[in-house]
Simulated scan of single mutants.
Amino acid sequence: MKLKKVTGSYAGRILLAAVPVAIVSTLVIGGVAQGAVPVSMTISGSQFKIAASQLDGTSFSQYAGVATDTAGKQHAVAIANIGQAKLTNLCQSVVADTPLGKVGAIITAGGGGTPAEATDLQIGMTDLKGNTSFDDVRIGVDASTVQTKAKGAVGDFAQDSSALHITDLQQISWSTTAAVFTLNGMHMQVTTDGKECF
């Protein structure tokens, strides 16, 4: 898992954060909104926040990992894999300090009774809060033997479960990727007041 190095102006940082939004917007405007949108939502160079009122997932695993940026700097992360995920009232935000103040972007989706959906979701996170329950959980298994497509290193501590349920999700991450991300009711907003998901 690699993160792009952010170089250049502060405006460039916000542009990098907004690139996945632009991809999604183009596809949705092109008439793909009712189908599955193949997209990778990865914010490079800075951590970002994700929130959801509810996450329901299947085929879950979690183990330790390292995210390395192009400058070679390593960031310790907990890697979470979810085979199929539904996220209600999804929010993603990133903010950067600029000469104009705190400028950022907020993406929301999955409201109005139609959750956002992701397939083969993988998250490299540093912080996670919420009320969580697991189905058929196994804790302390070898990371190379977890029951998900993505697996960790031999000998590393891991956990997995057949299903995962989280309410009041709040997460700080370095990266989020998915084979398919369907953002129902997506809205992207550029902010200049430092506003974030939480």
Results as ranks from 00 to 15, higher is better:
residue 161 S to K: 05
residue 78 A to L: 15
residue 117 E to I: 12
residue 5 K to I: 09
residue 57 G to W: 00
residue 165 H to A: 09
residue 154 V to K: 12
residue 78 A to R: 11
residue 133 S to T: 15
residue 136 D to L: 14
residue 85 A to E: 05
residue 126 T to A: 00
residue 114 T to C: 11
residue 1 M to R: 08
residue 64 A to D: 09
residue 160 D to V: 02
residue 40 S to H: 04
residue 96 A to I: 15
residue 20 P to Y: 05
residue 103 V to P: 05
residue 49 K to C: 02
residue 144 S to W: 12
residue 6 V to M: 14
residue 130 G to L: 10
residue 191 T to V: 15
residue 132 T to R: 15
residue 112 G to C: 08
residue 170 Q to W: 02
residue 22 A to I: 09
residue 62 Q to P: 01
residue 160 D to E: 05
residue 7 T to R: 14
residue 122 Q to Y: 07
residue 52 A to V: 11
residue 127 D to A: 15
residue 18 A to W: 02
residue 127 D to W: 10
residue 25 S to C: 07
residue 79 I to F: 00
residue 64 A to G: 10
residue 114 T to F: 12
residue 69 D to S: 02
residue 60 F to L: 11
residue 182 T to D: 09
residue 162 S to T: 15
residue 126 T to I: 07
residue 1 M to I: 13
residue 67 A to D: 02
residue 178 A to P: 01
residue 139 I to L: 14
residue 63 Y to E: 00
residue 103 V to I: 15
residue 1 M to F: 10
residue 173 S to E: 11
residue 188 M to D: 03
residue 103 V to A: 09
residue 160 D to K: 00
residue 130 G to P: 03
residue 125 M to I: 08
residue 97 D to W: 05
residue 53 S to Y: 08
residue 40 S to I: 02
residue 87 L to W: 04
residue 108 T to F: 11
residue 116 A to F: 12
residue 73 K to Y: 07
residue 37 V to S: 03
residue 167 T to E: 13
residue 45 G to S: 01
residue 24 V to F: 07
residue 78 A to W: 11
residue 72 G to I: 01
residue 60 F to P: 00
residue 65 G to V: 02
residue 64 A to V: 10
residue 65 G to P: 09
residue 63 Y to H: 07
residue 88 T to F: 04
residue 116 A to K: 04
residue 117 E to N: 10
residue 158 A to K: 05
residue 160 D to Q: 05
residue 26 T to W: 14
residue 179 A to Q: 13
residue 20 P to F: 04
residue 196 E to V: 11
residue 172 I to E: 10
residue 3 L to H: 04
residue 70 T to M: 15
residue 138 R to N: 14
residue 183 L to D: 05
residue 155 G to H: 04
residue 77 V to C: 07
residue 80 A to P: 03
residue 186 M to W: 04
residue 143 A to L: 03
residue 62 Q to R: 08
residue 58 T to V: 08
residue 72 G to V: 01
residue 178 A to V: 01
residue 24 V to I: 14
residue 45 G to H: 06
residue 60 F to M: 11
residue 190 V to T: 08
residue 6 V to T: 11
residue 41 M to G: 01
residue 161 S to N: 02
residue 48 F to I: 14
residue 14 I to T: 12
residue 162 S to E: 12
residue 82 I to M: 10
residue 63 Y to S: 04
residue 92 Q to T: 09
residue 168 D to L: 11
residue 88 T to D: 04
residue 26 T to I: 11
residue 179 A to I: 03
residue 50 I to A: 03
residue 33 A to R: 03
residue 104 G to N: 01
residue 159 Q to V: 07
residue 116 A to H: 06
residue 191 T to M: 12
residue 26 T to L: 13
residue 191 T to E: 06
residue 79 I to P: 00
residue 29 I to T: 07
residue 30 G to F: 02
residue 26 T to Q: 11
residue 6 V to F: 09
residue 68 T to K: 07
residue 97 D to E: 14
residue 170 Q to K: 12
residue 6 V to Q: 13
residue 186 M to H: 06
residue 28 V to M: 10
residue 51 A to K: 11
residue 85 A to G: 12
residue 124 G to E: 08
residue 196 E to F: 00
residue 28 V to H: 10
residue 89 N to R: 01
residue 63 Y to L: 04
residue 173 S to A: 15
residue 144 S to M: 13
residue 61 S to P: 03
residue 32 V to T: 12
residue 2 K to H: 09
residue 118 A to P: 04
residue 74 Q to Y: 02
residue 27 L to D: 00
residue 55 L to G: 00
residue 121 L to I: 03
residue 19 V to R: 08
residue 136 D to C: 10
